[in-house]
């Protein structure tokens, strides 16, 4: 009985450290207008305290992303699984290195995709891990197209 009581008392003491109601409320979806983003430009927006990279990819970048032998990748994923169908030019991803959470630099590294300065992880133009200590591809946030030039993230 005493052990159950002690365990029950621990629940609020542990739970209080999880994200509070205000933090969760502030994590509501956001809408982003894609209109002003030029081809070749990467725009950073914040959602839930995380930087979201919106990359308006050039034709060359799209071709590079598609032209990779998927089986040779550390975390195999075709480019088509990382963009919305018919929206190849819009690459939306969470700009947090999957190694230890630094922010990669866009348009850099040996694949001209993303390069993380902390521990040297290199991502391609699709945000897939190509070399370095990061275990997985840059994650994609949940998002949808509201129109051709507007997305909702979250």
């Amino acid at each position: 009985m005493g052990a159950i009581g002690a365990a029950a008392t621990l629940v609020p003491l542990v739970s209080q450290m999880n994200p509070d109601a205000g933090t969760i409320a502030a994590g509501a979806p956001i809408e982003v207008d894609l209109g002003p983003i030029q081809e070749g430009q990467v725009v950073k927006v914040f959602w839930r305290g995380k930087p979201i990279f919106i990359n308006h990819r050039t034709k060359k970048e799209i071709e590079e992303a598609k032209g990779v032998n998927v089986a040779s990748l550390p975390d195999p994923q075709p480019d088509s699984a990382r963009v919305k169908q018919g929206k190849d030019q819009w690459q939306v991803l969470i700009g947090i290195c999957t190694h230890l959470g630094c922010i990669p630099i866009a348009h850099s590294g040996s694949y001209n995709g993303y390069f993380c300065p902390c521990h040297g992880s290199v991502y391609d133009t699709s945000g897939r891990i190509r070399s370095g200590p990061a275990p997985t591809n840059l994650p994609l946030p949940p998002y949808e197209f509201l129109s051709d030039t507007k997305i909702r993230i979250g």
Binding site: M17, P19, T23, R48
Partner: peptide, 17 residues
């Protein structure tokens, strides 16, 4: 990690604790 942060990223709850 989310429990350590008290949010979705390092932020005010993290600094406080």
């Amino acid at each position: 990690v989310s429990w350590l942060w008290g949010g979705y990223a390092v932020g005010n709850p993290t600094l406080n604790r």
